[in-house]
Deep mutational scan, measured.
Amino acid sequence: MGSVRTNRYSIVSSEEDGMKLATMAVANGFGNGKSKVHTRQQCRSRFVKKDGHCNVQFINVGEKGQRYLADIFTTCVDIRWRWMLVIFCLAFVLSWLFFGCVFWLIALLHGDLDTDYKDDDDKSKVSKACVSEVNSFTAAFLFSIETQTTIGYGFRCVTDECPIAVFMVVFQSIVGCIIDAFIIGAVMAKMAKPKKRNETLVFSHNAVIAMRDGKLCLMWRVGNLRKSHLVEAHVRAQLLKSRITSEGEYIPLDQIDINVGFDSGIDRIFLVSPITIVHEIDEDSPLYDLSKQDIDNADFEIVVILEGMVEATAMTTQCRSSYLANEILWGHRYEPVLFEEKHYYKVDYSRFHKTYEVPNTPLCSARDLAEKKYILSNANSFCYENEVALTSKEEEEDSENGVPESTSTDSPPGIDLHNQASVPLEPRPLRRESEIGSRR
């Protein structure tokens, strides 16, 4: 089982795998120059863009038009607004034209077009017409509009002379109601789609790998820009990579689940303020055997998904993003964004995407760390350097704002901070800030 798991979770494809794949392509008759073999020097295209759209195009789909027309309502909801407006206008105009032609044909076959009612006051002739005051196609078209929109100006009306005319008036009224219901329903469904809710759900630009509770963890940050909550919010993550099976089958995008606390339930989050999602790199993680150097040379993509129900409509929305291997910062942490004021908490989104480097973060893999092949620094050293990194950030910001350097908390000259780390230190809580992250 261990060997199978290692093969499945191998992220960085070796040169031997690339040569094996190329040999397979030639042997199977696919070596026509169009096949692409992804190596370390040639990274694959992003499968999920940063804005959440999937970078996929469908080609050679059989009976595409028929399949889309069979699900016309979903098609109308998914198309762009400009095409929705075109369909909206065409549906009414074509129905008016169709029934206008029908009423014109009825008048033509009944002989109503030969009668001039402007110079004739004989009401008996008017009563013999199928539709009064309809003696041309324009008049028939206007009567069709008046019937379907129930305008009723009063000059044109159907008589009991022709039952077919009466039937067409009733039929057009029913068709008009159906068109109204369909168009209004599609427009309302399109307006109520929770897709735009994703514009106020954000992911951090970069993911980070750092120590948390004595273990290497992959972390990324999510935030909600609205005050309205995302009900039943939960997160998922998958690692996408290519691999070759033991039988020699090439899988271009193998999807591997990344555990973010599904078993323990901590994948469900209360997204009021930005939260750091934590994936513990343990023996079940696809990143277990990867060191910093392996991450730098790897070719994979981590897709992160945030799902929840919109509070206003109770409709489920899904926000997506992805991180390539070069977008994962090893040995970094996110800057705090949640600050405790006197009577409330304040979230500073200008710090949302910012990170700071944490010294002495192990550069080895989580496996080597678990097997004690890498000796961690003293816990006080880690905490102290973590505090120094934050303090230096604040000093830089104070210097930019014009604060005198004498007010900063610099260490005395001639003292090495790293050498001082081995000395037991008193706890130094942050002056006014605390970061709330997901705790395992």
Rank of each mutant, 00 (worst) to 15 (best):
A210S: 12
I302N: 00
P413I: 13
W104M: 10
Q318V: 09
N297L: 09
F167L: 10
P252Y: 15
E394T: 10
G31L: 05
V358W: 06
M219V: 02
T200G: 09
M309R: 12
S124G: 14
H353I: 00
S246H: 08
E385P: 00
T317R: 13
H353G: 06
L21T: 09
R197L: 11
Y374R: 12
V86W: 09
S381N: 09
G29S: 04
T276D: 13
L306E: 00
V388T: 15
Y153Q: 11
W81C: 03
D119A: 01
S124I: 15
L338P: 02
V166E: 06
F270H: 08
L376P: 13
E387L: 02
A379S: 15
K373A: 12
M24R: 11
A207C: 09
S10G: 11
N32A: 09
L425S: 10
S392V: 05
E426G: 04
F137T: 03
H53A: 13
T355C: 08
I209T: 02
K241G: 09
D348Y: 00
D284L: 12
S381I: 05
A298H: 07
C383T: 14
Y384P: 07
H332I: 01
Q41F: 06
G52S: 03
S124R: 04
C162T: 00
M315V: 07
S35W: 07
E385K: 04
P163D: 02
D284I: 13
N60K: 08
D121P: 15
G152E: 02
H110Y: 02
Y345Q: 13
R80V: 05
V222Q: 02
E385W: 02
P194W: 04
F88P: 04
E435Q: 10
V202K: 14
E199D: 10
I256L: 11
C101Q: 02
A312G: 11
K50I: 01
A129P: 05
N135H: 15
D263V: 10
I79G: 06
V310Q: 12
C177V: 08
S246P: 14
K195V: 11
V208C: 12
F167M: 10
E247N: 09
P413R: 05
G52L: 00
G265P: 12
E232K: 13
V169D: 01
I302Q: 03
Q42M: 07
Q318L: 10
S35F: 07
C130N: 03
L290N: 03
D299E: 12
V388Y: 10
F352S: 01
L329R: 08
N7D: 14
S45Y: 09
K64C: 13
V208S: 00
R221L: 01
G223Y: 05
L338H: 12
T75Q: 08
T39W: 03
F203H: 04
D368R: 03
F58S: 13
P194T: 06
S264F: 13
H110M: 01
I436E: 14
A298K: 06
L376K: 06
C43F: 05
V37I: 09
K346I: 04
N60M: 06
T313A: 08
I72L: 11
S228A: 13
L94P: 00
A22T: 13
G33P: 13
M19N: 09
G261S: 08
F182G: 03
G261Q: 06
I72G: 14
D119T: 01
L97S: 02
I266L: 09
P427S: 12
K372H: 13
E280M: 13
D51C: 05
Q255W: 09
R243L: 05
N135F: 08
F98K: 00
N419T: 10
H110R: 01
P163L: 08
V61Y: 10
Y344G: 10
F167A: 11
V358I: 08
T391E: 14
V77L: 11
V131M: 14
G152Y: 03
T313S: 08
E433G: 11
W220R: 00
N7K: 14
Q66I: 13
E247W: 07
I281D: 00
I184L: 07
N224T: 12
T316D: 11
K372S: 13
R226S: 09
W104Q: 03
L109E: 14
R431L: 14
E341N: 13
E16W: 03
E133P: 03
R268D: 07
D368N: 08
I328Q: 00
L69Q: 11
K20Y: 06
V134Y: 00
P404W: 12
D120F: 00
Y345S: 04
N378M: 07
G414N: 11
F300K: 00
N380F: 06
I174P: 00
N378T: 09
C54R: 15
V86D: 01
M315A: 06
T276V: 13
N259I: 06
T150P: 03
Y344N: 14
P336L: 03
F352G: 01
N297V: 09
V304I: 14
W104A: 06
S10W: 02
H418C: 09
N60T: 07
C43I: 13
A210I: 05
I269T: 07
D416Q: 10
T316N: 13
K241W: 09
E400V: 08
K193F: 08
R320Q: 04
T316R: 08
K292F: 11
A233F: 12
R431C: 13
L97R: 00
H229A: 11
G308K: 09
I305G: 06
D296E: 05
A325S: 09
R8S: 14
I256N: 05
R221S: 01
S377F: 06
A421D: 05
P336Q: 14
V134R: 00
R432W: 06
V347W: 06
F182N: 05
S291R: 11
H53L: 07
V347I: 11
V175N: 01
E387Y: 02
A325I: 02
I269P: 08
G176N: 01
S144Y: 01
V202N: 07
S124M: 15
F155S: 09
Q42D: 15
S136R: 04
V231R: 09
F203N: 01
G402E: 06
W81R: 05
L253A: 10
D116V: 15
V423E: 15
Y153P: 04
L94Y: 02
F47Y: 08
R5L: 04
I281N: 01
A25Y: 09
Q41Y: 07
W330Y: 00
W104E: 02
R351E: 15
D180T: 15
K118C: 01
E232A: 13
P424E: 14
T355Y: 02
I375R: 12
E63L: 13
F203G: 00
A27L: 05
F88I: 13
G2K: 03
S127E: 04
N386K: 06
N206G: 02
E133I: 03
M219S: 08
R5H: 10
E283I: 07
H205I: 04
G31W: 05
G33H: 06
K227A: 07
T355V: 10
E16C: 08
S14Q: 09
R46T: 00
H205C: 06
S399L: 11
Y9M: 14
R44H: 12
N360D: 11
V37Q: 09
P252A: 12
I251L: 12
L69V: 12
D348G: 02
D120N: 01
V358N: 02
A91K: 09
S136Y: 00
L113F: 08
K50N: 05
N206W: 04
S136F: 01
V102S: 14
K342Q: 05
K193C: 07
L417R: 07
V4P: 15
E199R: 13
S285H: 00
V158M: 07
G261N: 10
N378D: 09
M309F: 14
F339G: 11
E199P: 13
N135K: 08
F47V: 11
M309G: 13
W330T: 00
W220F: 08
K292C: 13
E385C: 03
T316G: 09
L225C: 11
C383A: 15
E371W: 02
K215H: 11
T355R: 02
D267F: 07
V222H: 01
T23P: 08
I183H: 08
D299V: 08
K49R: 08
N386Q: 13
F141N: 03
A70M: 07
F99Q: 00
S3Q: 07
M315N: 07
P194M: 04
L390M: 13
V12R: 13
Y356S: 15
E400L: 09
I256K: 07
Y288V: 00
K118R: 13
D282E: 08
G33W: 04
V56W: 11
D416I: 11
S228I: 13
H53N: 04
P424L: 03
Y117G: 00
I209V: 12
N7S: 06
A129S: 10
K373Y: 05
I145T: 05
R243V: 10
Q255F: 07
D51L: 03
T409M: 13
D263L: 05
Y334I: 02
R432N: 15
H38T: 13
S14G: 08
G331T: 00
H418S: 09
W104C: 14
S285P: 00
I275H: 10
